[in-house]
Computed example of a mutant assay.
Amino acid sequence: MPSRRRRNLTGIDRELKDLPQALRWREWMRRIEAVLFASATPVSNDALRRVVGQGASLDLLIADIQADLRDRPYEVVEVAAGWMFRTRPAFGAAIRVAADVKAQHIDLSDFEVAVLAAIALHQPITRDGLREIFGREIGRDLIGRLHGRDLIATGPRSPRRGAPYTFVTTEVFLTTFGLTSLRDLPDIEQLEDAGIAPTPRSV
C-alpha cells in the first residue's frame, strides 16, 4: 500500500473541505479551466471529474465558467467526446493576421470537404459507395490525405472474404468542424446551401 507521503505527492485534494463553499466552487472552476487550457484535445467528463469533489455538478461548474467567459474572445465548448477552449469565430480574421496558426489549420479543398460530408452522412461507406454518390472514382490519394490528417478512419468490414474496406469519420473530424457528435451534422439541404453538398464536382 502506498505511503501517505506518496499519496500526497501524486494525488490532489478533490473535496477541499477546508475551504468555504464559495471558494471551493471557484477552485473547482479554475481546475477545470486549467485542464482545458493545457489540453490539445477535448477533455471528457470522466477526466474532469477527477479534479472536482464527488458531489460537485460538472454541468453547473462548466456553465459558470461559460458565464465568466461571456465577454472574452474565447469560450468553453462541447466538442466530440468532451470539452475544450475555442476562440470565438468573430476573432478569426484577427488571429489569422497576427498569430502563427499554420500548424492548427487544415487546408481542405471544396471536393475534400464534400467527400468528408458524404462519409459523415453515410458512414460506414465504401469507395464504391462514394463513387455512386459522386458519379466518379474517389482517388486513393485523396482518401490517403484525409486518413493522414486523421479526419477519417477505417470502419467496420464485412466478415466475408474480400469484403471492401469502409470509411468513418473520427473525433478529429468532429473537433475540426466544431461538432459535439454526428447528430449535429447539417442536413443535405443545409450542405447544398453552403455549397459543400456531396454531389459530383471536379477536384
Rank of each mutant, 00 (worst) to 15 (best):
H105V: 14
L58M: 03
R70M: 11
A67P: 00
Q54T: 15
L23F: 09
A67K: 15
G82P: 03
S57P: 05
R30P: 00
R49S: 03
A81T: 10
A99E: 15
R72Y: 15
E27C: 09
E75R: 13
T10Q: 11
A56V: 15
S44C: 07
A103I: 12
I12G: 04
D110G: 10
R50F: 09
V76N: 01
R96V: 05
V115G: 05
A81L: 12
V113M: 14
T41E: 15
R31T: 02
R24V: 09
G55R: 13
Q104V: 10
R70T: 12
E75A: 14
I32L: 01
L19F: 07
V43I: 08
A67R: 14
L61S: 05
L58Y: 03
L48G: 02
F111M: 07
M29V: 03
L61T: 01
A103K: 05
S57N: 11
H105N: 12
A94F: 06
E15T: 07
I95C: 06
P42D: 02
L60P: 01
R86Y: 05
D13W: 09
M29P: 00
Q66G: 01
P89Y: 00
L108T: 03
A47L: 14
F37D: 11
A98T: 15
E27R: 08
G92L: 13
I65S: 00
A103S: 14
D68C: 05
N45R: 13
M29L: 04
L116Y: 00
A81R: 12
D100W: 08
R96L: 07
D46Q: 12
A103D: 15
A98S: 12
R14E: 05
I106P: 02
Q21A: 13
S109G: 15
G82H: 06
D107V: 14
Y74A: 14
F85G: 00
I65P: 00
L16M: 06
L61K: 03
G11P: 02
A47Q: 12
E15N: 05
I65H: 07
D71F: 08
P73A: 01
Y74I: 08
L16S: 02
L19A: 06
E78S: 14
R14Q: 11
V97S: 08
W83K: 03
L58W: 00
I95N: 06
R96I: 03
D18V: 11
G82D: 00
V35G: 00
A22C: 03
R96C: 07
A90C: 05
A117K: 11
P42Y: 09
K102W: 10
G55N: 13
L108S: 04
L19G: 04
A81W: 06
E75T: 13
K17G: 13
I65F: 10
W28E: 15
R49A: 04
I65T: 00
H105Y: 09
P20R: 02
G55V: 05
P89I: 11
V101I: 11
L116A: 04
E78C: 07
D46M: 07
W25R: 11
L36W: 09
R88H: 08
A47K: 10
I106S: 09
Q66V: 02
P42G: 04
G92A: 14
V51F: 14
G92H: 10
D46K: 10
A103L: 11
M84N: 06
